[in-house]
Computed example of a mutant assay.
Amino acid sequence: MSVPFADEPIAEPTFAPREGSPVETVILGRSRDLGGFAVRRALPAPGRRMVGPFIFLDQMGPADFAPGEGLDVRPHPHIGLATVTYLFEGSISHRDSLGSVKTIEPGAVNWMSAGRGIAHSERTGGEARAHGQRLSGLQMWVALPKDHEDAAPFFASHEASDLPVLADRLHSVRVVVGAAYGVSSPVTSGWDTLYLDVALEPTARLPVDADAEERAIYIASGVIEIAGDRFEAGQLLILRPGDPITLTALTAARLVVVGGATMDGPRHIWWNFVASSKDRIEAAKADWKAGRFAAVPGENEFIPLPE
Rank of each mutant, 00 (worst) to 15 (best):
S97Q: 04
G242P: 05
A204Q: 09
M60W: 10
R123S: 03
I219G: 07
E8Q: 15
R267D: 02
P67W: 11
Q235F: 03
R205F: 01
A275N: 08
K285L: 12
A252P: 08
A275L: 01
A212P: 09
H158C: 05
A290M: 07
K278A: 13
E201N: 08
E127G: 00
P153R: 04
L135H: 06
V257I: 15
L247C: 05
H76A: 08
Q235G: 09
P306V: 06
P145D: 08
G20Q: 10
R267E: 03
D279N: 11
R280V: 01
S277F: 01
Q133P: 00
M1Q: 11
D168V: 06
I269H: 07
Q235E: 15
D72H: 12
R174T: 14
E225V: 06
V73L: 14
F293G: 02
P9A: 15
G228Q: 11
V23H: 05
G178R: 04
G182E: 11
E105N: 01
I245N: 04
P17R: 14
I269Y: 04
P207A: 13
G132D: 08
W111I: 00
I10W: 15
L135R: 06
L237P: 10
H171M: 11
Y218N: 12
D264A: 12
L247P: 02
N110K: 01
L236W: 09
T248H: 09
N110V: 11
H131F: 07
L200Q: 12
S100H: 11
V223D: 10
L57A: 11
D64M: 13
G90F: 04
L239D: 08
G137R: 05
L247A: 02
L43F: 10
A45G: 07
P46I: 11
F37Y: 11
D7Q: 12
L206D: 08
R215W: 05
G234S: 10
D72K: 09
P4H: 15
D229I: 00
A42T: 08
P13A: 14
T193M: 07
I79L: 06
A130I: 00
V223F: 02
I245P: 03
A233V: 02
G47Q: 13
G178K: 02
V198F: 04
E159L: 12
R40M: 13
V109P: 01
F155H: 13
P202Y: 06
A284Q: 04
F273Q: 02
S121H: 06
R230W: 00
D162V: 03
E301R: 15
L57Y: 10
W111L: 06
V23Y: 06
S121C: 08
I224D: 06
A167W: 05
D192P: 07
L163C: 06
I219V: 15
